[in-house]
């Protein structure tokens, strides 16, 4: 059994938050450059050039890639060989430090780190405390969405996803009829893209979750949206569906910034799971062209 100290997690999380905020992932930058090479319209070329230039400025000048520095997702995958230990052997002794976040030594360590990095690196705090009534900014970008999963892979995988609100608003859950075929499903996605995509900073990354349940399908879709763009679904039929949806979306001609062009989406990623015999959940989660992520195995 390997002990991983809270300090190690905090140090790693800090590095990942900084990396995600200021460095556009290499696979996304490559996809933007590939799109730039096939675009013929001036406005599309110019938008894609600006994305490339923006990535350079953000990285060298430490200005966040987007003014919307996002909701922070922290995904933890724990292998069978690790044990998380507090620095002072006193779990549970901490006060309730962060309202709205459960009090636990791992969660507190994550919250402390997010709060510290958002302040120190001039990142925008975008979270409001009460969704419906007060809507007061929490002032530290907390709470963070934390996902903990168990794995057979040895080690401890820590990942940060930063998600902007604009593209978030364009996401959707459809509960389709189980007899619905591939064409109907594809049509739903293309229709949603047509009605919503100009608000989601195109060219977008389309994350799709198919199956599971009404509550779990959006998680699959989010996972898909944050998957490396060079990785196709391991199942050949779903890999073909990814390709076919991407082609259909890009044939709409909506293009970068919605001003016409060949690249409305940089990628379509699908994750799927078994579901109840009465259901066929379809969740679509848009990532903008600045979908920010960073991960590390400790």
């Amino acid at each position: 059994m390997r002990n991983i100290k809270i300090t190690e997690i905090k140090n790693s999380l800090k590095v990942l938050l900084i990396k995600a905020s200021f460095e556009l992932p290499g696979d996304i930058l490559d996809a933007v450059k590939a799109a730039r090479s096939i675009e013929t319209s001036r406005s599309a070329q110019s938008m894609l050039d600006m994305i490339i230039e923006n990535a350079g400025i953000a990285c060298t000048e430490k200005l966040p890639l987007c003014q919307d520095c996002g909701t922070v997702y922290v995904n933890i995958e724990m292998g069978p060989d690790v044990c998380i230990v507090p620095d002072n052997n006193l779990p549970g002794s901490s006060q309730e430090k962060f309202p709205g976040q459960k009090n636990n030594f791992i969660i507190n360590a994550i919250s402390e780190t997010v709060s510290e990095v958002y302040e120190k690196y001039y990142l925008r705090n975008s979270i409001v405390s009460d969704p419906l009534y007060e809507r007061v900014n929490t002032g530290n970008n907390l709470p963070t969405i934390i996902n903990l999963s168990l794995s057979d892979k040895p080690g401890f995988y820590l990942e940060v996803n930063l998600k902007g609100g604009g593209s978030e608003n364009c996401s959707w859950l459809f509960m389709l009829n189980p007899s619905c075929g591939e064409d109907d499903l594809k049509n739903k996605v293309v229709q949603l893209v047509k009605s919503n995509v100009t608000k989601a900073c195109p060219p977008v990354i389309i994350g799709i979750g198919i199956g599971a349940t009404a509550s779990e399908a959006p998680k699959l879709a989010r996972k898909a949206a944050f998957r490396n763009l060079e990785i196709r679904n391991g199942h050949s039929r779903y890999a073909c569906l990814e390709k076919s949806i991407l082609e259909a979306v890009n044939s709409t001609g909506i293009g970068p910034q919605g001003l016409g062009g060949k690249t409305t989406a940089l990628a379509c990623n699908i994750e799927f799971a078994p579901c109840h015999m009465a259901t066929l959940p379809l969740s679509i989660f848009f990532g903008c062209h600045s979908t920010r992520r960073a991960g590390e195995r400790l």
């Binding site: 400025i57 000048e61 925008r124 910034q257 903008c288």
Partner: peptide
């Protein structure tokens, strides 16, 4: 419409920025 999601690039076009009102609303 302004180019979206290229906010480090657009920051270069801003010469000065200050809060004019409602400071308590933060961003």
């Amino acid at each position: 419409i302004a180019p979206p999601g290229v906010a480090a690039y657009l920051a270069k076009k801003v010469k000065k920025i200050s809060v004019a009102a409602y400071n308590d609303l933060g961003p």
